[in-house]
Design a protein around this nucleic acid. Structure first.
Lengths: 159, 159
DNA sequence: ACCGTATCATTAACATGTTAAATAAATAAA
DNA sequence: TTTATTTATTTAACATGTTAATGATACGGT
């Protein structure tokens, strides 16, 4: 791009190096994700909600009462992060937290009316962005991408 | 999966909600990425290298001297994160840092022999994992996936 | 009932993500 | 040349990612 391009590769472009960064799957996944989230984040920021917090309250709106482990699975958030997110959302009155009577270890989560209000404000705009994406790529290509991603997600390395 | 499934959805499954979490593109991208990185992280951890640090030294091995802005673009790391990573890698003698004589604002990065040593130890194992992935999915499907991801990365939401 | 073990949630410690603001150097404009 | 504006990097502040350790509860076998 610019004339300050890199100089003097330290290693010949041979088999020793990992594949070129430009076609690196992990980085490509990052870039694609960021391209999407850059559209959603500003909209969530207006409600002082992070992307992860949005995932949590959205799942609660979808599913009703969910315990923390279940939430961690669905929202793909690690337990320590979820602990902090739950604390923050509860302090702000966006979700309710209660101990499971049948299993004292579990924490049950539920969205509050205030949380629902956020959902109702954000969801239409969110849907608009997805619709634009779908119109641009076509439903089938998105489904194809989702299928490929699911396959990669199932990759466990044991040939 | 379990019998502690969620109960009492708070919102009817209608048009108000965003699309179901199970087919959410951002989360699918996260899951796929994590499935890959879970194989690489332990291997990097043995050298006390994070995934992002690996990206930095790998790019330096590929390209020689690179300035910080260029690195941020290539490794897809935000400037503030890169500042911390550079500091850490330099303190550990894995990279060298120097001011650009032609532009006092720029920071030039270069890998050290110690850094190259890490590359040489990690690269073969890294390549092995990629080869397994390629054997599992086939080169064409991976290329297809990369192409789709590039397209999503180019999505700007306008029109 | 007791013990050992497994599971769930939290805490701790450190690295990175994210946005905004500050600093410093280069560049354009007056 | 002096000023104003851009550009590159850093700092700050807070949220999350990541791994390991801890505390608490549940559960199995004895």
């Amino acid at each position: 791009m610019t004339d300050r391009a890199a100089t003097k590769p330290k290693i010949p472009q041979d088999a020793l190096l990992p594949r070129n960064t430009r076609r690196s799957l992990p980085i490509a996944l990052l870039r694609a994700r960021e391209a999407l989230m850059s559209h959603f984040r500003p909209m969530l920021a207006e409600h002082d909600i992070t992307e992860q917090q949005w995932r949590v309250i959205r799942i609660l709106a979808e599913a009703g009462t969910v315990d923390a482990s279940d939430m961690a699975d669905r929202a793909f958030i690690l337990a320590p992060s979820l602990t902090r997110i739950i604390r923050s959302l509860e302090e702000r009155g966006i979700i309710d937290k209660a101990k499971d009577d049948n299993d004292g270890r579990r924490v049950l989560l539920k969205i509050t009316p205030a949380g629902l209000a956020i959902i109702e404000e954000v969801a239409p705009e969110s849907r608009l962005i997805y619709d634009r994406l779908e119109k641009r790529f076509g439903r089938e290509r998105i489904e194809l991408l989702l299928d490929l991603l699911d396959e990669v997600a199932a990759f466990n390395g044991n040939d």
